[in-house]
Design a protein around this nucleic acid. Structure first.
Lengths: 197, 197
DNA sequence: CGCATGTGAGACATTCATGTCTCACCGCGG
DNA sequence: CCGCGGTGAGACATGAATGTCTCACATGCG
């Protein structure tokens, strides 16, 4: 680890703490504040100075995840070109945040009736809009609702992130596997319509 | 509370407790032993008499999930007929257990390095074998590994279960949406493969 | 009827994560 | 030189969940 450039006046790198916490909580969602602090290389006291409690930490992670999703959506230009290409760009852009997303996705399941961050609603809408655009342009089938396609994308991102972190699939194949499955499915289908017995 | 038909000699219906716990833990994975007991309509003491602790309860749920998966696999006859029809049967058979699977799937993520029940390995193998059979018969594309297709199936089952439980998709569409997305993908194909009735 | 069995209710100690606090250290700037 | 801000280490109390225990009650069976 790099102890270089420790300045007394320099506050602990908040972003570094958040990303370390994200990496840890992705693997062990019940990790202790103490474990999070150790993973980030700071003391529990300092961690608690920056994030009032575990809730605050999770909410900060949620904000980070939302920001990264928004950034990925912006970078993917979901309104340009073929919808399938936009989906491909989106998955590629969102890949670095997939592990964090997987954590937040499952974490949100236990918020039951509580109000969920409005940021997610906006992201859901943007992604669903992309699928809807693909349906209206005739690229995507219309019997799968945009809401379900959005949900399925989250699920595949989570599955992919876990599969990669446990070595069941290669990290390099992440985007390809998700995009190909989401768009093309498992069936082998001819590019050109052709007749076969 | 229903005191009806309380038999002294009759032990608390273990299966009923397990299924109630599964339903609750699916929605709130951090539910207390007390909440589980109340949900099952028994006291915490009785719950603790049947399951030594929370770990024992989760392991019992895991065994239940494994048994239901095995039963679904048996009922789906994965070695008969077209692979895509077998996948369709499998999803249909596994649908009732999808919520429990979703809970166990995310729960297993935090077992880190611990030994995981060997039952899952067997189920993984059987499902992967089905996808492999589909690849060898030429039905499924070969650029998506059986391991990834298996993982993706789990992810879609979890997403579907959550989406249904939160009302984002209709329960009746569960099987259709998962099978169609997993096999056919979101793209509109020139020749849509027909369903097994 | 009387006993055995299984249950509900609740008290109790224990463990653990959390949150708050104090104190010592260190580097910088006045 | 000395204060000041930020940190690390650790003590401490709190609360929650857990696990164990006891006692009273209900029901079926001999």
């Amino acid at each position: 680890m790099s102890h270089m450039r420790y300045s007394c006046l320099m506050a602990v790198d908040r972003d570094h703490v958040l990303r370390t916490a994200a990496a840890l909580l992705t693997r062990k969602s019940t990790a202790t504040m103490d474990e999070v602090a150790k993973a980030a290389g700071i003391s529990r006291a300092t961690l608690h100075r920056h994030f009032a409690g575990r809730d605050a930490l999770v909410r900060a992670l949620e904000s980070l995840g939302i920001a990264e999703c928004e950034a990925a959506l912006d970078a993917a230009r979901p309104d340009e070109g073929a919808a399938r290409d936009a989906v491909h760009r989106l998955v590629r852009e969102i890949e670095p945040a997939a592990a964090l997303l997987a954590f937040l996705y499952t974490e949100n399941q236990l918020f039951e009736g509580e109000e969920q961050n409005a940021g997610w609603a906006r992201i859901d809408d943007r992604i669903a809009a992309l699928f809807r655009r693909g349906q209206q342009s005739g690229e995507f089938r219309i019997d799968l609702t945009p809401a379900w396609l959005t949900e399925a994308l989250y699920g595949l991102l989570a599955s992919g992130a876990w599969a990669v972190s446990e070595g069941r699939v290669a990290r390099n194949d992440f985007t390809h596997m998700i995009v190909e499955l989401l768009l093309g499915g498992a069936l082998r289908q001819p590019e050109q319509p052709r007749e076969e017995s």
